[in-house]
């Protein structure tokens, strides 16, 4: 048990040691450190498909981290560093795309979908209501009444012909 705990402890320690050997960077201030962490999380490694430069071990990501630190040391602000990278690696290198014609779909499509879904919902609930409305029922009543009337007319007709028939029969008998 003791051995197990020691082994796990050593494994954890070795991990920490490895993580600190490469990225020992001394910052001028807490603010600069914060800016550096924000930038390396927001800038995208152009070599690896979906990693930010803080996350990636690619040579180019390392170089971009070093450059980011260097530019911050020169006193550049966040936007200047982002622009520096975009000028070299394109918009791809930044995880927050700008709003333009090509990217507008990203924002407009979901909004459009919600609006359309709302429209359909309203439309459907309306057509349902119409079925339940009493005016419709009275329409039906009218139709039913008309049917009944025409039916009784038919009956009258047939009874009339029946009467004629009986009259004929009577004549025959006479």
């Amino acid at each position: 048990m003791n051995k197990f705990v020691i082994t796990i402890g050593l494994l954890l320690l070795s991990n920490i040691a490895q993580a600190t050997t490469e990225d020992q960077i001394s910052f001028k201030s807490e603010q600069q450190k914060q800016l550096y962490l924000e930038l390396t999380a927001e800038l995208r490694c152009p070599k690896c498909q979906n990693q930010n430069i803080a996350d990636s071990n690619a040579v180019v990501a390392k170089d971009m981290r070093v450059k980011t630190k260097q530019l911050l040391d020169e006193g550049q602000n966040k936007q200047q560093v982002i622009d520096y990278m975009i000028n070299r690696y394109g918009q791809f290198a930044h995880y927050q795309p700008p709003f333009n014609v090509a990217t507008s779909m990203l924002w407009l499509l979901p909004i459009g979908f919600i609006l359309f879904a709302g429209f359909v919902q309203v439309k459907r609930s309306k057509s349902k209501q119409q079925v339940d409305e009493p005016t419709n029922l009275s329409d039906l009543d009218d139709e039913l009444a008309q049917l009944l009337v025409s039916d009784s007319n038919n009956k009258i007709d047939t009874s009339a012909s029946n009467n004629a028939k009986t009259e004929a029969n009577v004549k025959d008998i006479k």
Partner: peptide
């Protein structure tokens, strides 16, 4: 290479 946007 960085100025050229080279990734590898």
């Amino acid at each position: 290479s960085l100025d050229l946007g080279v990734t590898g």
